[in-house]
Amino acid sequence: MTSISLPPQAVGSAFSLDKMIVARDKTMAAVRRIAAQIRPGMTEQQAKDLAKAELESMGMDRIWHGIIVRFGRSTLKIFKQQIDPDNVLLDDDIFFIDLGIVWDGHEGDAGDTFVTGDNARKRACAEAARQLWQEVADKWRRERLAGPALYQYAAERAEAMGWRLNLDIKGHRVSDFPHSIYKAGSLGDFAQCPDTGLWILEIQIADPSGEFGAFYEDLLVSES
Rank of each mutant, 00 (worst) to 15 (best):
P208K: 11
H172S: 06
R62F: 12
F212Q: 08
I203M: 01
A30K: 07
Q46K: 15
V69M: 10
M58R: 14
V31H: 00
H65R: 14
R32E: 13
S180Q: 11
L145V: 00
G210R: 00
H106N: 06
D104M: 03
D98C: 10
E135Q: 10
A160H: 10
A53D: 13
E223W: 08
I200F: 01
D93H: 01
M60P: 00
E44R: 05
V31M: 10
G105I: 15
R62N: 08
W199H: 01
S16V: 05
Q46M: 04
E202M: 09
D118R: 15
K52G: 04
W64A: 11
E156S: 14
Y216F: 10
C193D: 00
I34T: 07
L50W: 04
E217M: 11
K48I: 10
G117F: 03
R141G: 01
H65N: 09
M42Q: 05
L187V: 10
A160M: 05
C193L: 08
E202D: 15
T116S: 11
T43L: 12
R121Q: 15
K139M: 13
M20F: 04
V69T: 09
Q46Y: 02
S180T: 12
L220E: 01
A124Q: 13
M60T: 00
A51Q: 00
M60G: 00
K48T: 14
I203R: 04
A128N: 05
V115Y: 07
Q82T: 04
D168S: 08
D168P: 03
G210E: 00
A120N: 03
L90K: 13
D112K: 01
W163G: 02
F96A: 10
D138H: 07
R141L: 14
K77S: 07
F96Q: 11
D84F: 13
W163F: 11
S175I: 07
G188C: 07
A128W: 09
K183D: 12
R173K: 08
E156G: 02
D118E: 09
C125L: 15
L90Q: 09
W133S: 00
G213K: 02
